[in-house]
Every structure is written in structure tokens, then in C-alpha cells.
Design a protein around this nucleic acid. Structure first.
Length: 854
RNA sequence: GCGGGCGUGGCGGAAUGGUAGACGCAAGCGACUUAAAAUCGCUCGAGCCUUGCUCGUGCGGGUUCAAGUCCCGCCGCCCGCACCA
């Protein structure tokens, strides 16, 4: 090719060329190589919604930087990709547009795979799978059966959102202001028998093991810790005065037994057995409980709802005083799932209890006061930290002045000694309900037999595949109304039986895909040789929105897989390191129509704050997460077509720290494209210089090069890709201005290509080739910084006078503290400020700063 | 409501308790050009009595020789809340 043709950066040609070269050389095929250390990089796999978006580009580019960097460091890298393919949107599409969820899903996967491949990601596509492949969910069913036998799965009643018009179960997001999203009908809470994983058996372990996850963000560990919610408290029973038969004791759980003398009422959940009993016999209770059940099933809805109670008329005796009677209320904010579903209220020291007491005219006796204040509680409860010492005026155990924590322990000890209940450790974490009354999910492989009850399927009958001949022209689960699919024989007695029609929560699918990637075609869920080599995931990357549910479920599921022999014990914490990346945002463009309704416009239709088509000015709303409804989306495909994948990748990594949100701007994308073009041109210039005689400027350039190697390496290791890119800019500027010899410049440029390769792999390959690099840069070892080239001879120290910068001195890098002090005191500004007096204090931080206090 | 996080120039951001604003964008000025684009060079937190000084990291306090960084109290925005993925 001639120089003239080469003179412009043409990403489209370059990118196609190198993607083909990588594919032919099978560079990214993961190989189990006992001679090499392994490295498993995984990004949270995408839901096949139909098109990739910039969030995907950012997520996968970050993973790709790590994968390529680790490969250059000599690791055998596993970097797979798959599809989280079950879920509601496919069924919604089938209902809205006709067609079949399967066709919609696989169609989307094909489109998205085609959109993803031009990004040049170092993915081993031979391992690709979708969770809706029967080969995948069949293995999931096999594990479900193993877990059932291992006592990790059970059935119990649980509440769902029921749409009485559509006669179907709704997801929380389908309930809008208490109404069904399609029917608009008031949603009811309804109890169904459902399948559960016994994650609560692992509450303590999942909590304790968080301490070992050193390479997880502290915030995620804290969120999980709070979610699991370990608490120490007292469980005891109030004896009822006038309760219906069978309810003469009401068990309550409290984390504040020290406030027992401040009790003013007992509250029970609307789902408490006593409430249910009363509901059947008392129309007023029934009306109240029915009202409570209109509140959604989410904790958020419950907490935000107005706190209401109903006086049952039942009275209980205080455990310390037979004459002291407390009223029993049914209260809408008490959860049946937590503790015993019943509490006692101590209004003086709990704001919610106080609001409740004030609303219903109940007393609120103070139990303790602050040491310096004894104002009785009125409208604001006194809730100091448990670690703070307070003075007990209605205490019954321990010291008069003690911390809340000490008082709780003393109260538990006192109660146990006096036969009033016992200390217990509770967890907020509830068992994982996995039943979904939907078609597009993994069928739960059990059979209902009149004689044998609920029986797991035989493994040789797996996969229990979804039937294809279903329709979505009516609401509800098509499996329920399929003419033949449910019919089967009982695996136990051989009599005719019916299949379970519930399918699994899609969180089950995503709780083990990382393990399946190690042997995606195995005819067992996992293959021991492969999991032994590849597990754990060394670096997991995804959104912070998954901080709790997905990551906690995966941690549990890995343990369940260990227990059932599908993972080695060493894999019970499957993700060694976690990184949570921020979102991609964009400003929003809006106009109003003649009726004042908001109309949103795509960024590509806007120029200089005006609509391209009509010239109408648009209102610019500050950046928000890219969403279809606000139309503030930029299609990666358009960016790749216009600027190339390397520009999209580089821009997604530059500027913003990876854990924070990044705003996509067209100016930023264009600037990136220009920069990559400059690098490309610089390479041309340097290639033309060739090998020549050394120059005086060589050392400076090579020092800058080693500094860049060191800085970029550290930045990539620390996930500070924006800083790595800032260093690459700085080094590029140095190189482009350098007067060094051609020999040195070629060395520097080749190193630049290597350092850029994880971010912009296509451009890097092209530079590498033009400068005569051996093989592919994708397979070249990572450059090493020479420590001798990193140390400077002299260092400039700022001099502060009373903490404000006033001057600076340049000293030898190895100057002693005494020498620095001497030089600092001789500095003009210091001499002037001291005016002949000795300094009151002289602080020298070697290599950093000097502070003179006058 | 509860749990978690974030907040620094016109913008994205940098800064082991140690020179606030690295690096980039935008803008301005200049060079080149018939011209524009591209490219290259310079300037770029605010104010002032401009060799320098004062103020400045959401707001109000505090600790320290020294605070964007640590502590206390607020405000705003974002994520999660168990059937969205």
C-alpha cells in the first residue's frame, strides 16, 4: 500500500482486518493449560432485549481491557459471553406483537451478537450459550432435583400480586399504584403454594464470608451485610387475657428487650394466624385486614403506606406484671416474614411506634434518658445509638447508666433467668421464592401424583422442555391451559400424574452461568476437571444494581452446588473480585406539542440545540440514564459505523472513573476519533524515521516511556482506566514533541501501541505491524518498566508558610531531612516571613512538602 | 420509609491528610490557508490594589502544622428494597 493511501486513519478497514486475523489465529480460544496460571474475566451477561446499548459497550470494554491485559501478562484467559434469555419481556412481546417468545429471544440474540462482534472483544465465542437453551436449563433442572434431595428446596405458602381481572400473577413492576398495568384492576394479595430455596440456612455463613471478599467493593459488602440483617434479641410470649382458643400465647421477637418496661401495645401482622382467625369471625377485622392487603407486596410500599392499626379488643399481660394489660392491635406495617410476625411497641424509643401510639392515644413511657437531658418524649422518639450510654429510669437489668447494647444483653440474661423467653439470633434474609407462574422460564421438574404427592422427575427424562405450541392471546400461564403438556406418569408409582407448571425465577439461571462457562457443552451441569482449573471467576464486572439480589443468590447457589457435588469446595465464593461500573447517561432533548405534552427526541435528530428537521429549539434536560422512553439513547452501531469500535471503546474508558456514571457526548466521541487519528499519523511519521544514531534526547523519551509503562500498568491493575488513558495522552504528547532518535522513537511508539492495545486493540495491531512488531500485539508480552528509569535525580518541593504555599525549592532526590531544612530556611520567602525569628515549627515530609510555622 | 453511594472550573474529571484543578472536552487568541476544514502553538477557577495577594472542592461547624480527603449536622442527586433484568 502506498503512503498516500495510508495517510488517513480508516478504522473500518483496520478493524475488519484485525478481527479476521484474531479469529484465524484463534487468539481468544480459552485453553486449559496446566503450565500457565489461569485468569477468568466475566462481565454480567446481557438480557437479549433486541439491541446492544452503550452500557453494554462500557461493561464489555472494561472486561476486555482486563482480559487482554491479563493475556499479555502470561495468563491463560477465559473470557466468555452468553445470554440471560428467560424473562417477562419475551412474553410481553408475544402478547403485544404475536409470535413466540422463543423466536423473539433467539432473533434478538442473533441481532445483538452481530452488533457486539464489531467491537473486537477478546471473547471465546465457542462457549456461548443462552439460558433458554434446553441443554442449559436441563442441567439446571438436574441440579434442582439434587438440591431437593439435599434438603435445600421446599414448598410453603407465599403471597403474590393477583390481578383479579386478568386472573394472573403480576410482578412488582407490573403493579402501578396498586393497580394491574394492563387491566387497571385493584391488585389483591393472594397466597399460593410456592417453591423456595433454603437460603436462610446459610444466613450466618453468607454474612461471615463477606469478610473474606477483600476484592469486593466495601459498599456492596455493607449492603449485603445489612440485607442479611443479623440481629440479637429476645423471643418471648405474652399471655393473653381474653384471646380465642389456641391463641392464649402471642410470641413476639424484639431487638430491644431493655425497653420492655416502656411497652404500650402489642402489634401483629395482618397475615398473623391470630389475625386470620379473627378475620373469619369479625367483619370489622375482615374489612381492616382486606384493606391492609391492598398495599403492595413490596417492603417499600409497606413502609411508605400510612401506618394503621386495628384494636382487636384482646388484651395481654405484661410478663413482669400480671396486672399490667396491653392492647393487641393488628398493624399494617408488621411483616409476617420477619421474627414471629408480632412485636411489642415501645413508643418512647421507636419513631414508628410513637407515631402509632400518638395516633391511637396510647401511652409512651420513657425507659431511658440521655445523660444530660431528661425531657420526656413527646413527638420525637429518643433513639440514640446502641453504643451510647444512657440513664435507665424504667430499666430492670444491668446498671442504671449503661449503653443500649449492654442493656439488651443484661435484659436477655435477666429474662432467661426468670423464665421469660430466650435470647435468639434472627436474620432479616428470607428464603428465596423461585416459583413463577409464567411460561418463559425453566420448568420446575416435579410431578404431582395423587398417590405419591410431589415427586421429582427422573433425571433421564430431563430436560423437561417447554412446549412450543402455546399461545399468548389470553393472560395467565400457557402451561396451565396446554392440552397435553402437563400429562405425565408419576416417576415413583407410574400412575398418570400432572407436571408442575410453575417455572423458575430467572435469578436461578444467572446464579450458575459462570460455572457453566467452564464446560458449556458438558452433559452434566459442570465438569470437575474444568471447574478445578477455571473456577473461580477472578474478576466479575457489572452494574451496582445487582449488588444484593443477583450476587447474594449466586453466592448461595454456589454453596448449594458445592453441597450437591457440582462445584469444588474452593468455589463456594465464586467471584474473587467484583467491580461495579456506572451507567452511561446522555442529556435529554424535549419539545412540547400543541397540547403541552412532552415529546422526546433522539440525539441524532438534534443539531446545535435545534431539531434538524424543523429548526425548532429543544429544551435540554440534564443527563440521565439512557432509556428508550426518554429517547436519550445513542446506538453503538451508529458510532461504530461513523468512527469505528476503537473510538467507542476509548471514549467509554476515558474521562469518567469506571465506577461512576459517564455522560456520552458527541463532542467527546469526535475528540477521541481525532486523537486516535493523531496517533495513527504519528506512527506514520516515526515509521519513516527508521533506525538511526542515538541522540541526547533519547534518555528523556525513554524515561517518559518507562514512566508510562509503570503508570498505565498500575492504573489498569486498579481499574482506573480513565487514569491509564490520561497517562497515554501525556506520553503521546511527549512522544510527538520528542527530538529523540528514530531508534528511540520506534521503541517508544511500539510500547505505546502495546499499552494502548487493551483499549484500542485494532489500532494497536496496525501500529505494531507498521513498526515491524513480531506477531500480533494481542499475543505480545506486556512491557516492563525499568525501575532505574523511574527515579528522578532532583525533586521540587513546595514550601508552605503556615500551611499556605509560598515558594518551592529543588533538591537532590536523596537529600537528607537536615539538608532540606537548611535549604528551606534559606529560601527568600521563608527568610522574609521569619523576619529574623526562629520558626515555631518546621515540618519536612521527605519528597513531598515543607511547612514552616511562624 | 429503610439500606447504600455520590457531590471539585463552562463540562468530564485528577489529587498515599502534604503545590487543588493532572489529562481531556469546550471556548478564546495566533500560525498555516485565497477561504474553510484539518493541523500546529499559546491562554483558560473567581476576584483584586496583578513582581503578588485574597477567596475557592454542595451547605454549616470541628480536628490538624496542613482538610477535596478525617469527624459531626444538613441539602441535593443516584442505586436497591426480595416477582424488572
Amino acid at each position: 500500500m502506498s503512503q498516500a493511501q495510508d495517510a488517513r486513519y480508516q478504522p473500518q478497514a483496520i478493524e475488519q482486518k484485525w478481527q479476521t486475523a484474531w479469529e484465524q489465529a484463534e487468539v481468544f480460544t480459552a485453553r486449559r493449560d496446566p503450565a500457565k496460571p489461569k485468569y477468568y474475566v466475566l462481565e454480567m451477561f446481557p438480557y437479549p432485549s433486541g439491541r446492544i446499548h452503550m452500557g453494554h459497550v462500557r461493561n464489555y470494554t472494561m472486561g476486555d481491557v482486563v482480559a487482554r491485559y491479563k493475556a499479555a501478562q502470561g495468563f491463560s484467559v477465559l473470557h466468555p459471553m452468553g445470554w440471560d434469555a428467560f424473562g417477562m419481556p419475551a412474553e410481553n412481546a408475544a402478547m403485544e406483537q404475536g409470535g413466540h417468545p422463543k423466536d423473539w429471544t433467539y432473533g434478538n440474540i442473533a441481532v445483538m451478537r452481530d452488533q457486539m462482534k464489531p467491537l473486537g472483544l477478546s471473547i471465546d465465542w465457542s462457549r456461548e450459550f443462552a439460558t433458554c437453551d434446553p441443554e442449559y436449563y436441563g442441567q439446571q433442572q438436574a441440579m434442582f432435583i439434587d438440591m431437593l434431595h439435599a434438603g435445600l428446596v421446599y414448598r410453603k405458602n407465599a403471597v403474590v400480586n393477583w390481578d383479579p381481572v386478568d386472573m394472573t400473577v403480576l410482578a412488582n413492576e407490573q403493579v402501578i399504584d396498586g393497580k394491574g398495568w394492563r387491566s387497571g384492576a385493584d391488585v389483591e394479595r393472594r397466597e399460593l403454594t410456592q417453591w423456595f430455596f433454603k437460603i436462610s440456612d446459610y444466613s450466618a455463613e453468607l454474612l461471615e464470608a463477606l469478610d473474606g471478599l477483600k476484592d469486593w467493593p466495601e459498599k456492596v459488602r455493607l449492603m449485603q451485610r445489612n440485607w442479611i440483617g443479623q440481629s440479637r434479641g429476645l423471643q418471648f410470649a405474652f399471655g393473653a387475657v381474653n384471646a380465642p382458643e389456641g391463641f392464649d400465647r402471642i410470641e413476639v421477637y424484639t431487638t430491644r428487650p431493655d425497653t420492655l418496661m416502656g411497652a404500650s401495645f402489642v402489634g401483629i401482622s395482618p397475615d398473623h394466624p391470630l389475625a386470620k382467625h379473627l378475620e373469619r369471625h369479625n367483619p370489622d377485622v375482615a374489612a381492616f385486614v382486606a384493606d391492609c392487603r391492598k398495599i403492595g407486596t413490596t417492603e417499600e410500599a409497606l413502609e411508605k403506606a400510612e401506618k394503621k392499626g386495628f384494636d382487636t379488643g384482646i388484651r395481654v399481660r405484661h410478663p413482669f406484671d400480671d396486672a399490667w394489660e396491653l392492647p393487641v392491635y393488628i398493624a399494617n406495617f408488621i411483616l409476617m416474614d420477619y421474627g414471629t410476625g408480632a412485636i411489642f411497641g415501645c413508643p418512647a424509643h421507636d419513631q414508628r411506634d410513637l407515631d402509632f401510639a400518638n395516633k391511637y392515644g396510647l401511652p409512651h413511657p420513657d425507659v431511658f434518658f440521655a445523660l444530660d437531658n431528661d425531657t420526656p418524649v413527646d413527638a420525637t422518639a429518643f433513639v440514640p445509638p446502641k453504643t451510647e450510654k444512657v440513664r435507665y429510669v424504667r430499666g430492670f437489668a444491668g446498671e442504671e447508666v449503661q449503653t443500649g447494647a449492654d442493656a439488651v444483653e443484661a435484659a436477655i440474661a435477666f429474662c432467661e433467668a426468670n423464665g421469660v423467653g430466650h435470647g435468639v439470633t434472627q436474620y432479616r434474609l428470607r428464603d428465596w421464592g423461585l416459583s413463577r407462574q409464567r411460561y418463559w422460564g425453566c420448568p420446575i421438574p416435579v410431578v404431582h401424583c395423587d398417590a405419591c404427592g410431589v415427586v421429582p422427575e427422573k433425571k433421564e427424562n430431563l430436560p423437561i422442555a417447554l412446549p412450543d405450541d402455546v399461545s399468548f392471546d389470553q393472560p395467565g400461564n400457557p402451561l396451565d391451559r396446554h392440552p397435553t403438556w402437563r400429562d405425565c406418569v408419576c416417576p415413583s408409582c407410574g400412575a398418570p400424574a400432572k407436571r408442575e407448571t410453575d417455572t423458575m425465577d430467572t435469578f436461578v439461571d444467572s446464579s450458575w452461568y459462570y460455572a457453566r462457562f467452564t464446560s458449556p457443552r458438558a452433559d452434566t451441569p459442570t465438569d470437575k476437571a474444568e471447574t478445578d482449573y477455571w473456577m473461580n471467576v477472578d474478576q466479575y464486572i457489572g452494574g451496582i444494581e445487582h449488588a444484593i439480589l443477583h450476587l447474594l443468590y449466586s453466592r448461595f447457589f454456589a454453596r448449594a452446588m458445592v453441597k450437591t457435588g457440582h462445584l469444588p469446595d474452593s468455589a463456594k465464593e465464586p467471584f474473587n473480585a467484583l467491580f461495579t461500573q456506572g451507567m452511561v447517561t446522555h442529556e435529554i432533548y424535549m419539545t412540547l406539542d400543541d397540547k403541552g405534552r412532552k415529546i422526546y427526541h433522539l440525539p441524532e435528530d438534534i443539531e446545535d440545540g435545534k431539531l434538524k428537521a424543523t429548526g425548532e429549539a429543544v429544551t435540554i434536560i440534564p443527563s440521565a440514564k439512557m432509556s428508550k422512553s426518554k429517547k436519550n439513547v445513542v446506538d453503538p452501531v451508529n458510532i461504530i459505523n461513523a468512527f469505528g469500535a476503537d473510538t467507542a471503546r476509548w471514549f467509554m474508558l476515558s474521562d469518567s472513573p469506571p465506577e461512576r456514571d459517564v455522560e456520552w457526548t458527541s463532542a467527546g466521541a469526535e475528540a477521541t476519533y481525532k486523537h486516535l487519528g493523531r496517533v495513527w499519523t504519528l506512527c506514520d511519521k516515526i515509521a519513516a524515521m527508521g533506525v538511526d544514531q542515538p541522540s541526547d534526547a533519547d534518555t528523556d523519551l525513554l524515561r517518559a516511556m518507562h514512566h508510562a509503562i509503570d503508570a498505565v500498568t498500575k492504573a489498569v491493575e486498579n481499574f482506573a482506566f480513565n487514569k491509564a488513558i490520561a497517562e497515554l495522552y501525556a506520553f503521546t504528547n511527549t512522544l510527538s514533541k520528542s527530538q529523540a532518535s528514530g531508534t528511540a522513537q520506534v521503541t517508544a511508539m511500539k510500547t505505546l501501541a502495546q499499552l494502548m492495545a487493551p483499549m484500542v486493540p485494532h489500532l494497536a495491531e496496525d501500529i505494531w505491524e507498521r513498526l515491524g512488531g513480531e506477531g500480533l500485539v494481542a499475543q505480545a508480552p506486556w512491557p516492563k518498566a525499568d525501575p532505574a528509569m523511574l527515579v528522578a535525580d532532583t525533586v521540587t518541593l513546595p514550601i508552605q508558610i503556615n500551611g499556605k504555599r509560598r515558594s518551592e525549592i529543588t533538591v537532590a532526590a536523596d537529600a537528607s531531612k537536615e539538608e532540606v531544612e537548611k535549604l528551606a530556611l534559606a529560601d527568600d520567602a521563608v527568610v522574609k516571613a521569619l523576619a529574623g525569628n526562629p520558626p515555631r515549627k518546621l515540618i519536612v515530609v521527605p519528597g513531598r512538602i515543607v511547612n514552616v510555622v511562624v
